[in-house]
Amino acid sequence: MPQSDCTPLLEVENLKVHFPVKEGVFARAKRFCKAVDDVSFSIKPGETLGLVGESGCGKSTLGKAICRLLQPTAGSIRFEGESIESLSKSQMRPFRRDLQIIFQDPAESLNARHTVGQILEEPFIIHKIGDAQERIRRVRALLDKVGLPQSSLEKYPFEFSGGQRQRIGIARAIALEPKLIVCDEPVSALDVSVQSQILNLLMDLQRDMGISYLFIAHDLSVVRVISDRVGVMYLGKFVELADGDELFANPMHEYTKALISAIPVPDPTVRKDRVVLRGDVPSPIDPPPGCAFARRSPIEVSEDVASQPGEYIEVSPGHWVEVHPATVANHERFLVRS
């Protein structure tokens, strides 16, 4: 199906993933952990959307829900215009070819008892593609594509270094020529010199195959390099979303500013002014009422104001921010209604 530039490949609307918190073995859940709470965004064909946030902000849960590895509680996920949020396992199968995921530690997602050849052949067997000879030809082509030697075929995952294992994970993900890959912290466990090799590989594959990425990471510098647009999550919600250049040059939300200013700069001559946040991230179980960030923001507001919710609005073309007295300086300028 040909895609024009304006049709999104993936559209997520008002997505919620809530986990019940059980107080006892037989008790019914009275409270919910709101891991992903009312999130909307889209990804265009060939685009990389970076997703950053600190541990527990819900970014990995969001990635898994999109791949339907977790059942969303509410909201919709449309892939090439078709709703997939409530499809059964067998109904999902045709979409699995187009929708793949890469994890942080490929050692855990690769079957330790299978050779690399077997691991990479499996997707073709499941989707009944080619005969044995054709499959092995495709597996060899995959190894070339991700920069692994042909001798890898007969080896087991444990015989490889972390960076090479991630190449195996990537080879498996691209085997069926998917349209979207959710990359969940794919380089976080790797050393810097290997990290840059994997990032380059992902960018090459995108250029050659037109794949879109949802790239989840906690490292803002990594996200900066690979993404077209960047979304910032805090406690289950998007607080800011914009073109990457725009977000790093002109961050508007106080949380985004704090994240960017916290990155240690590898240049001893640079002295930065840090935005220091008060306290810790609150629990997603019973989060504080109103604006979840207000009580930590450097812009101090009264409890009355903090308990009012913020508004997620498009402040300039393509730049979305959660606007609240505590999250954006001079917030009034955005709230003028006609």
């Binding site: 010199s193 990032l199 803002l220 510098s221 900066r224 390099v225 700069v265």
Partner: peptide, 13 residues
């Protein structure tokens, strides 16, 4: 080889 916040985007490292 380290990515920086001011690195140009989508350019090879």
């Amino acid at each position: 080889s380290i990515p920086r916040v001011d690195s140009p985007r989508k350019e090879k490292l």
